[in-house]
Design a protein around this nucleic acid. Structure first.
Lengths: 161, 161
DNA sequence: TTATTGTGGATATTTGATATCCATAAGGAT
DNA sequence: ATCCTTATGGATATCAAATATCCACAATAA
């Protein structure tokens, strides 16, 4: 069970967009170049983010993407769900119904006990992802990345947006 | 991102095995019949549980599987990891290395910030799964399943083990 | 007008999940 | 001894999803 690589790409792209000066945008091509990933496929992830209302695309030269909300209003979970979908990681197929000893008129039961436990774990995962926003990420990156690199990135982005 | 259906099957099988009288076993065929799943494929899940030391198989007529440990010593996480593997749900491919602005001599850095957050969420998921054992499951099932059904299951298992 | 961009559809390729089958060895029953 | 049942593990087939590319189109700025 692995998340798609598009999830990783989307998170990194949002991290970069979160540091973008007001009014600026970055194109799919720039984002793909920066991260060294295929432009055409990354485009699909960006479209998913756009559909989810996390980023906002605009057409034409000088077009591109920017965040559609303030960084503090976008959680990791928002991004993961936009790209990966919202289905739970555990799918209960109700195999308890196949139990030969089960009364046939039992129809209104609570969710399968096993599924409930698995879903609680799923919710713990989501809760942790909900707890970190792009603003938090920006703060962490600012503290961890060498000042020299941050300066170069700002210049690179400035020339491309 | 979905867990394999074998995870669901393995959990249900372990739940049934946890209620097995001392010294009794259930065959792959019985477990498959009880849950209404393909015997040959379920067998792969049971083999994974066996390799992981969660269940113990024995050959010959009257052979089959039983738990290799007390139910309180087997967590949901043990079962999930036995069937699904232990890889983290988020794979970091270190795309930050492709960053054109990154200093080339940076080699010894801490794990990627984004990966750290994703891994913390993964750990929250695992922690929740670690917290529930087969003994807990047995207690929940005993409280939720109608007494009539429990009695029938005990009889069915008794005739097959 | 022209070049650039996002959007969405179609499609190919590769990987993994799902599933079946068979050979083998071992253990009970007769 | 013989036979049936069982777990084990390998080989293989089938199907769905992830990965990736390409193209047509409309919008937009220079």
């Amino acid at each position: 069970m692995q998340l798609r690589n598009q999830v990783e790409w989307a998170l990194h792209c949002c991290g970069l967009l979160a540091g973008l000066p007001e009014g600026r945008r970055l194109s799919t091509k720039s984002l793909a170049d920066f991260h060294g990933v295929p432009k055409e496929y990354l485009s699909k992830a960006l479209q998913a983010l756009s559909t989810a209302g996390i980023v906002e695309g605009s057409l034409g030269p000088a077009g591109g993407y920017r965040l559609a909300k303030p960084p503090s209003a976008v959680s990791f979970l928002d991004i993961v769900e936009a790209v990966e979908g919202r289905r739970r990681t555990f799918a209960c197929t109700e195999i308890r119904r196949n139990n030969p000893c089960r009364a046939t008129d039992t129809c209104d039961m609570a969710p399968c006990t096993i599924a409930r436990v698995m879903w609680e774990a799923d919710e713990a995962w989501r809760e942790r992802l909900r707890a970190t926003t792009l603003a938090d990420l920006a703060a962490m990156l600012g503290a961890e990345i060498p000042a020299e690199t941050l300066r170069k990135v700002a210049a690179w982005v400035g020339a491309r947006s």
